[in-house]
Amino acid sequence: MTKSQERSFQVLLFASLRDQAGWTKQRVMLPDQDLVTAEDVWSQLQLGPRPASVQIAINRELVSPQTLVHAGDEVAFLPPFTGG
């Protein structure tokens, strides 16, 4: 693992959020000191206020917006589900 991978995490977008942002997956560097929450990650994406219907998963489990993000995590933003 490279130095940059040790200090970074992955962000995934799905469905309409992909179209809005123009990308599917990005690797993001963690700031050196500050604690970073999932909501902070959303704010950095510059996609506007997070709709209440957009859920957040870290490492494929749903979490609250205040959950801390750590190096190596996979943070995903999920529009409302429409399967079945």
Binding site: F14, A15, S16, F81, T82, G83, G84
Partner: peptide, 14 residues
């Protein structure tokens, strides 16, 4: 189970 899949599983239709 069908309702759970519809509302809880991360699928998106286009």
């Amino acid at each position: 189970l069908l309702e759970a899949i519809k509302h809880q599983a991360p699928f998106w239709k286009r």
